[in-house]
Design a protein around this nucleic acid. Sequence first.
RNA 1: GGGACCGUAGUCUAGCUUGGUUAUGAUGCUAGCCUGGGGUGCUAGAGGUCGCCGGUUCAAUUCCGGCCGGUCCCA
Length: 480
Amino acid sequence: MSKEIGITVKKSEDFSEWYTQVVIKAQLTDYAPVKGLIVLRPYGYSIWEFLKSSIDQKLKATGHENGFLPVLIPESLLSKETTHFAGFTPEVFWVTHSGDTEIGDRLALRPTSETLAYSMYSKWIKSWRDLPLKINFWNTALRAEIKSTKPFLRTSEFLWQEGHTVHTTKEEAEEEVMTILDIYRKTVEEELAIPVIVGKKSEKEKFVGAVYTTTMESIMPDGKALQMGTSHFLGQNFSKPFDVKFLDKQNVETFAWQTSWGVSWRLIGALIMVHGDDKGLVLPPRVAPIQAVIVPIYSSDSDKDAVLKKANEIGSSLSQRNLRVHVDSRNEFTPGYKFNDWEMKGVPLRVEIGPKDLAKSKVVLVRRDSLKKSDRSFDQIEDGIVKALDEIQADLYEKAKKILSERTKNIVNLDQFKKEIEKGMFVYSPWCGDQKCEETIKEDTGADIRVIPFDVKVSNAPCIVCGSPSKTEAVFARGY
RNA sequence: GGGACCGUAGUCUAGCUUGGUUAUGAUGCUAGCCUGGGGUGCUAGAGGUCGCCGGUUCAAUUCCGGCCGGUCCCA
């Protein structure tokens, strides 16, 4: 019976089912009535809020401002940059009517906002003095997912931010691309405790319309790679069709250089997959809506009063140190129920306090990640919790890093390559740079080039597919 | 892109093959008690358009078709 209340499958045995149960049962999200759409519940949304605020602060600190764009984009505008349009059109939702009246120039529910943003930018930018223009938008994007959908990872509407910047020079724009990628990497590694590999996408995998795409990739416990965020150098590919130009200091009309970039709530999906276990979610302390939960334990009424009093006392002193703490004083549940409940929701630390503890002036501290228990005397609680939270954050990252490195292989032989891909590995292999080889390997093994890391070794080793001298190494894996 | 499966109370589910009086059980929920250091026990109660639309039939949760929604596997 008890097994049916919590997560009923093991992460290692039925990963998909495990994931679905965790997102629903930990009350992060629920399915909406329309296919492929989900609702964020407060517990899930509040994780997004921490992520959002972390990224937002870093963007503001590097000179970005927030704006707002409408959700509808006329087809005539969306189709102005042709490769971009061709790339997105299969998954665009169209609004064709207002009331009963058919709309002549049908309206797209934004799959992304480059076209809309740049048609506005062209009005706003006249002089080199107007640049750089660096605006970020917190909104949602809509991309129709016909087949398999999965909460946070693949949904037809998703929460994200999209940044769109305009610069006077190529160099400045390229620097911006890297600044953003670095903000993303830091956020993911430091807040979500997920290590990533940063680099470029191949020509085949880059953002449609971009000159090149930089990306951060990570591998999930089921062996599939997940794109965690991208930052694109657009060159002048959009500034020309959208007429984003300025008068430079020499009074010469010049097309601007642009970037765009985004991360979505997919990061929450990654967080769940990377850190969760058979009992449910495991949240890194920095993004946990509740960092420590205090569970009072009592039997008699007199115990109850004394225990609750102390629990509340501890709770408020922790709050004063800016810790997100919750005292679970629900009377209708036993301590055992509460333990399981908060473990499923991934709260990093549990503080147990009962009559036995009161007698000894201490509490029991339990870590969610290791489930290890230890005692803290009353005067050590605050420091003890701060320290334990830091340790959990660091340990989660180290654990994930170890898994990433265990899942990473260097392979030069094609047979070996296929075996490792089959096992769900991140495979570093030499590649000639030819898109045909990329397509061949995709057809044969299901793996694509996830990323060409910045720090990769360059050698003349034969291409893993065709055997001709390679231009670079690339990271291959099957992806989400 | 190809294939398989599923939809009955908040949740999980029996019944469907072989249509027939009041749709089964558990859990959760409400009230009262009990209990409390790992999903506690008792009593009473509320909770259902059997996903939706249509067809077959005297009669459909059950058979057939379409639609909507969900899950999994393969590429």
